[in-house]
Design a protein around this nucleic acid. Structure first.
Lengths: 192, 192
DNA sequence: GCCTTTGCCTAATGCCTTTAGGAAAAAAGT
DNA sequence: ACTTTTTTCCTAAAGGCATTAGGCAAAGGC
């Protein structure tokens, strides 16, 4: 008799995340995950509500992993050092785990997002800003700008948007961080 | 007798783009487009190679539309004025046409990308930089940074990443542009 | 050792994609 | 105008993923 696969949600989400990294987040499918455990797709419904639920959980997992890495990287650093470390975490994670990183962009329901590691990311970005001298009212704007750059840069770099053009992307990355550091040190005063 | 729908590729791509705006780019389906023309899905294969081809063409359309808008907006402007105008085009387009904008992120094959309006976007961004005093070698880095911010900001704003947090996004947008303008005017010199 | 819960299965439906092959309308040639 | 060719849409059919309904057997609680 077949030994039961003894599946559980966590196991499935992990496999889904691996699948995302290998085939792309958009190709994550209940059928394929089931196949990897030699189980019928229907059987997964015992552990997952549906396909969307799987994707959501992969997103939550990735957000969590990323936040853990960020927390490690930030420990004991401040100023530009912290900025570079945090940014590096995002870029490295995206390169190592493209599917998981893509999952990070998955649109979560508001309550789900609120309960995710998302807020932790915001807090860590805010922590980086403590190394700079920004007025309280400007912090949120700066957090959003940094988030945009990390998100957008990675997106474009992975999307091949930078291929074919000359300077290598490592150099651009380094210059981008220099630029952000400069910007945060000379943050423009609000006009009014 | 039924009058023939007289379909053609352009018409289908337009309908697909509209569908993307209404239902989201990921829900663009040959079946649904066919439904909108009261035609069997199979019939679309006369005008489109396959589903992927449709998505690709929607992406190309969006890129083109966006570039046209950008060209209009940039005409006669320079400096911060041009920066704000270009950035505004991206943000407005994303808000008016979320599905088309999402299509813009669709990963194109290298040759397809090269023949798309993508390079036009790069040239226009470069044109904006002419209003600032950047060393030639730094221009590409700056182009990429601007692209990242436009891309990332829009992505996060539309993804609801900024919801629930306090200051309104219009204000952040305005501050972001101030920040970018400042940054471009005080672009850090390369160390080495 | 029963009995309930749990984990996986078969059956079945619906929707989407894509290939094959046909028929009729539109266009082109004589 | 009439035939031939091309174009455009159709029916048939197969394969894949998602999801619901309902069943059986293994694990675990008493």
């Amino acid at each position: 008799m077949m030994v039961r696969a003894r599946l559980n949600t966590e196991l499935l989400v992990g496999a889904g995340a691996d699948l995302a990294d290998e085939a792309g987040f958009e190709h994550v499918t209940l059928s394929e995950v089931a196949r990897r455990f030699d189980v019928k797709a229907v059987s997964l419904y015992t552990h997952l509500r549906n396909s969307h639920d799987l994707r959501t959980r992969i997103a939550l997992l990735a957000l969590e992993e990323l936040a853990d890495r960020a927390a490690d990287a930030l420990a004991g650093r401040s100023g530009k050092d912290a900025l570079v470390a945090l940014a590096g975490v995002y870029r490295d994670y995206a390169r190592e785990h493209p599917g998981r990183y893509a999952a990070t962009r998955f649109r979560l329901a508001p309550e789900t997002a609120a309960a995710s590691a998302g807020p932790r990311h915001v807090r860590m970005t805010r922590a980086v800003l403590r190394g700079y001298d920004l007025p309280e009212a400007e912090q949120t704007h700066a957090v959003r700008l940094l988030g945009s750059v990390f998100d957008g840069y990675t997106d474009l770099e992975m999307g091949g948007g930078f291929d074919h053009s000359a300077p290598d992307t490592d150099r651009t990355w380094s210059r981008t961080l220099d630029a952000l550091d400069t910007l945060l040190r000379h943050w423009p005063a609000p006009e009014r």
